[in-house]
Write a protein that binds this DNA or RNA. Structure first.
Lengths: 338, 338
DNA sequence: TTAGGGAAGTAAAACGTTTTATGCAATGAT
DNA sequence: ATCATTGCATAAAACGTTTTACTTCCCTAA
């Protein structure tokens, strides 16, 4: 249907009065073709609106200029309707336009291990895996099939794996803790997520080591990434019950907003008595009152680094990593003490 | 790279001790193959982890089970980082999982008319175009190439075009106006967007006809979809300068939130003196205080209808439309009068 | 006995490219 | 005068499927 009416290389060859080899070579800048012939072929191709068939080319060359994106964080959710963390919502769009600038198509591929598997899934040149989990079956499948991939976020269970990129999470953790410290906070509590990914693990580790260095007892409240604002409120209540801290650091903006709501509702002032910050910015963090300090992640920068790595990998079979970008701390009213 | 190590149909044939035709027929349920042979072939295929090469199949069959999604609203934005309208952010993910359930891959294709064109772009089975503009060059290109497509939103300049689906916008417009009316409002102002799409046009038309029926002078404030919260505030100031209305209806949640901020700042009460509502829900609308009444659009339902139509179109060459879904009005505090 | 027909399977063509191997002049070197 | 070399162009193979047309065998009906 979409094909059939298609202009083939043969039509172009006929029109230009040359062989199909000449057409292929002319259009792809290969072989030895005189400038004059090359021009004639190009003209013929333009006139006919010729576009090389992607399948035929893909079949011959073994690659097609298409990569897949698997969002593990969304696979976990099931319904692909992400919940208020900027970076998830934006990454697919950003990656797609960045990929295109390099001549690559981007296909969204839901969980590769569940059938039905998308027809093109195993014919992709490579994959970008966002937020892979520990012992991720998708990773195992790609390894088994020998399909190249890079990850947004490191593989927790494979310390030797280097083909990943992300914001420098440990750095960000130290940064926000220093930010709290500078504003006079000594006791900080952490509201962490429950997904087993590097994001949660790195922040937790830095937090624990900070507590140890400062000789304060860690206070960690786990809350599923999926629980949203209500989960944040729940965490807020639990925190208040255990005693009012000087600062609360939440992994998501929604949790932070929920925590803040409960804290304010209890008559505790923000940022006066308690400061609040989030590890990932979101609409919730921005539009809470007071607005909540948060890290603006860097999906665009990370997308570029990931594509750099993936393209190197495709070309040379190897690449060096990890490559880190920087999240940007957006100080807002929730941590402002004059 | 991704290929090369690939298991081909020939390997399966050798292993099962049959011809490649037998393998093809067995696996695809065609031809006349005994149950016993069929089983043997399937076993061999499984053992080898055989997956038919998508390109080879695509080349032979002319279609590949992949569709493209073009988001015109995001193309307009340029950087593919959408701004707070739920439906845009969620549609790609939803469509991709819905398409997969039908055995179709979804590829994100930025503006088809700008080079570089993604390699697979002209080999897609069909397209879903979201929010096509009037005289859209992408539509023209698809028409010229004879590539089937369906649209999320009707084509303003082609009243005869029926292959579209969307929420019933005129119905929603009448519904919210009735909602205002029931709460006692007589004068309603409209904050519209500037994109030339059906969404804006339909709401505007219903609004104008409502004004005419009620003998009130229309008050329309245009504001670019891209202007966000600040644009909303700007509209709010302009509205206040022209006189406090009884109700404000905004096309986006962000505009509504901005309008509300300025109205409250001017000491006017919401919903007491002015009611506010939005035509599309968003995080902004939900988390404003008071929370803003808005329509929750139906990207999932619309995605299914669009895929129904597209699949029919691919199969039979035609389909009937338009097919409408319903947006759901979420009444919130901003229009609550007891 | 023979023609007809169905069941089970296969050989080979076709899809549209890219690439490899080759051909043919014309030019330059011995 | 002959042999390489170079520049330009082409024929044909190959990629991995699906599909068309054909073969073979066996059974049944006339």
């Amino acid at each position: 249907m979409a094909r059939g009416k298609g202009v083939t290389i043969r039509d172009v060859a006929r029109r230009a009065g040359v062989s199909i080899t000449a057409v292929s070579h002319s259009l792809n800048g290969k072989g030895t073709i005189s400038e004059e012939t090359r021009a004639r072929v190009k003209a013929a191709a333009d006139e006919l609106g010729y576009q090389a068939d992607a399948f035929a080319r893909g079949m011959r060359q073994g690659s097609i200029g298409a990569i897949g994106l698997v969002m593990r964080s969304l696979d976990a959710l099931g319904d692909y309707t992400p919940a208020g963390v900027d970076v998830f919502e934006r990454f697919a769009g950003i990656l797609s336009s960045r990929a295109l600038a390099r001549g690559l198509s981007l296909t969204l591929v839901p969980d590769l291990t569940r059938s039905p598997v998308p027809p093109l899934a195993f014919s992709m040149d490579g994959y970008v895996i966002m937020s892979p989990n520990a012992q991720d079956p998708v990773i195992e499948l790609l390894d088994r099939r020998g399909i190249p991939y890079v990850c947004y976020g490191k593989l927790l269970d494979k310390p030797d794996f280097t083909r990943w990129s992300s914001e420098d999470d440990p750095l960000a953790a130290r940064q926000i803790l220093a930010h709290f410290e500078a504003a006079g906070a000594r006791e900080v509590v952490l509201v962490s997520g429950t997904d087993r990914n590097a994001w949660n693990a790195d922040f937790l580790q830095e937090y624990l080591s900070w507590c140890e260095r400062h000789k304060v007892t860690p206070r960690v409240y786990e809350q599923s990434e999926r629980s949203g604002l209500d989960g944040g409120r729940d965490a807020g209540l639990r925190i208040l019950a255990d005693g009012v801290p000087e600062a609360v650091f939440c992994m998501t903006g929604r949790h932070a907003a929920g925590v803040q709501q409960e804290i304010l509702a209890a008559g505790v002032t923000v940022p006066g008595q308690v400061m609040i910050a989030a590890a990932s910015d979101s609409e919730h963090a921005r539009s809470s009152r007071p607005a909540i300090t948060a890290f603006e992640l860097n999906p665009a920068g990370t997308a570029d680094l990931l594509l750099d790595m993936l393209q190197e990998l495709l070309k040379t079979g190897e690449t060096v990593g990890p490559r880190l970008t920087r999240a940007r701390l957006r100080p807002r009213a929730s941590t402002r003490r004059d």
